[in-house]
Design a protein around this nucleic acid. Structure first.
Lengths: 133, 133
DNA sequence: GCGTGATTACTCGGATACAAGATGTCCGAGTTTGAGCGG
DNA sequence: CCGCTCAAACTCGGACATCTTGTATCCGAGTAATCACGC
């Protein structure tokens, strides 16, 4: 039970895009260099963000990745869900009827966390962004 | 990013102890039979619960595991922390100064979830407990 | 009946095995821009 | 100067390798209650 490092990468990459390049596409190479991670692995995360509709890819020379939606609309939860998936964090493996009381409690707790992450927009941090390193 | 099945086992085992056997020790064998899981694996979880101080082991014949604390005091968070560990769910892997804004947001979200789980006691479900299967 | 030892029913911990997921690399294919070159 | 071709700079996707973690089993050691047995 831990957030993956991939989520960490994705959040920082999105913060960079929102802060430094609102409309110009940024290449994986540059982004990976700024974050200090490998291009190929980072590109996998960006692909997921594309599939989630958060950013779009621009192919060809001078291409790269660019924000798709309005910067104010992108929440932490959007990014986390794009990488980690939207499946519930808890699934009861016993088959007691249809509903497990324990599962209901844990899922409600999860909902508390997601609600907070939903209301928190990545753009709120953009002003204080001073670069990655 | 998912709760482990071990946590699922531990929560159900604790619910059983709180509901059905407030003071008599229950053997791993019986508990595993009730839950329908392997004894040896379940015993690993129970060991963790012992180390967390939630239950105590009674060795020898007619031994087993028994609640240690007051049943009303045991929260979901206690059990989850005993199995999953108390480490933060998110750790920024970049070294920008000392504090990462992204990390602060995620950790605050995590705190929201934990607060809910802390206030939710396992004994609240005991009344509606109808057995596992 | 009573003490002593053996048996039994438990927990405890380490070693091991296996599968799945996270992390990371490599490479070939497709796409767009732009430069070079011939007419 | 125009149009064609080709190279370069990108993304995209699959295949692969590796490492960690979760899941699970097995076994030997320790402990306490109880049973058996001899006195």
């Amino acid at each position: 039970m831990k957030f993956s490092q991939a989520t960490d990468y994705a959040l920082h990459a999105m913060l960079y895009l929102v802060s430094e390049a609102p409309d110009k596409p940024v290449s994986v190479q540059l982004l990976a260099e700024k974050l200090g991670v490998s291009q190929t692995y980072l590109s996998k995360m960006l692909t997921k963000l594309v599939k989630a509709g958060l950013i779009q890819s621009v192919s060809g020379v001078n291409g790269g990745y660019r924000l798709r939606r309005n910067r104010e609309d992108i929440s932490f939860l959007d990014i986390i869900h794009a990488i980690e998936g939207t499946a519930s964090l808890f699934e009861c493996s016993f088959n007691h009827g249809s509903e497990c009381l324990i599962q209901q409690v844990v899922i409600e707790a999860e909902r508390q966390m997601e609600q907070y992450l939903q209301n928190k927009k990545i753009s709120e941090l953009a002003g204080q962004f001073k670069g990655i390193g």
